[in-house]
Design a protein around this nucleic acid. Structure first.
Lengths: 95, 95, 95, 95
DNA sequence: TCGCCTGATAGTTGCC
DNA sequence: GGCAACTATCAGGCGA
């Protein structure tokens, strides 16, 4: 037999699964790196809990800003101005 | 005074925080990669739900095996056998 | 309309919240019972750490078994075999 | 010797472990009850997220009050007044 | 006894 | 819109 069940499809499935597992392993490694940074900061006398708070606040701020940009986009669209993706609109067309 | 709050310490803190934010951004990217792989697999006709189950089972299996090793280590320690990191047990105690 | 804020709805909400708080108090009590059992076992000379490991392994095993059953169910559904709740498959389809 | 390994001690250990597992199962059941209450409340139009917030606030309040009582106790002890456990000190001793 | 670390829990986000 | 996976937070247990 050549293809048969567990053949090509199985191979592809296995590849997908292994790819995912590999990616999740990378995520885990990074999470450990994060812990290390916290540990090092703590060793320098910084309070991890406060750092977490700061980071989450900055994240919220970023989300806010993004929200505002989205809102701006919506306005622009509504006005027919279409602010080209990511706000890049340096109007070089004038050249 | 020379300490100047917001000076050196602030700089270090900022560096830690930015490092963490960068790492978490990487994590997020990887998570997106994972989603992409699921999407691609689904496009090939594989069932994401089943894939997730398979992956979680494999993870459980791995965890189970690891637990068994950990338990073995604990037993050894409890019995005073000290398998020392990674099974090294050169039993020179006879001296 | 007759809603009157703080009226019926408020009463119901309060009842839900108090019910939840009561249930969580029960959970807490049980957690304390668990601690007592560990303490008693330790008093009998058993090592709490090992007990915890054993318990977590048994939990992993159970989870693993359950995952396998769930996966089997999912396969069957995916294949249109419908294993009907709890493995009942009396194959009367021949009729 | 009479006990033999895996004998009496093993039996007792097993009993402890099973007792703990049973207690944890109870905890799990109660947690499910909690979820049911949330679900029912939600079905009545209440917002689970807000309910959780309320409950955690009440818990904090309770903790605060307890803290204050503890503080009061400390003061009393410092003053040699010994407020007898649980604040019950209605001085009926005079009878 | 204090600090770390693991395991439990609560909250959030994404999928169905 | 409900449900489930995942993540982040927190508390209890362990070791120094």
């Amino acid at each position: 037999m050549t293809t048969s069940y567990g053949g090509i499809e199985g191979t592809h499935l296995r590849q997908y699964i292994e790819k995912i597992e590999q990616l999740e392993a990378e995520k885990k490694n990074i999470a450990e790196d994060v812990k290390e940074v916290y540990a090092e900061a703590k060793a320098q006398g910084f309070d991890a809990k406060i750092m977490r708070k700061v980071i989450s606040m900055r994240k919220l701020d970023a989300a806010d800003r993004e929200e505002q940009e989205t809102l701006l986009d919506i306005y622009c669209h509504a006005l027919g101005m279409i602010p080209s993706p990511d706000g890049e609109d340096r109007s070089e067309a004038a050249a």
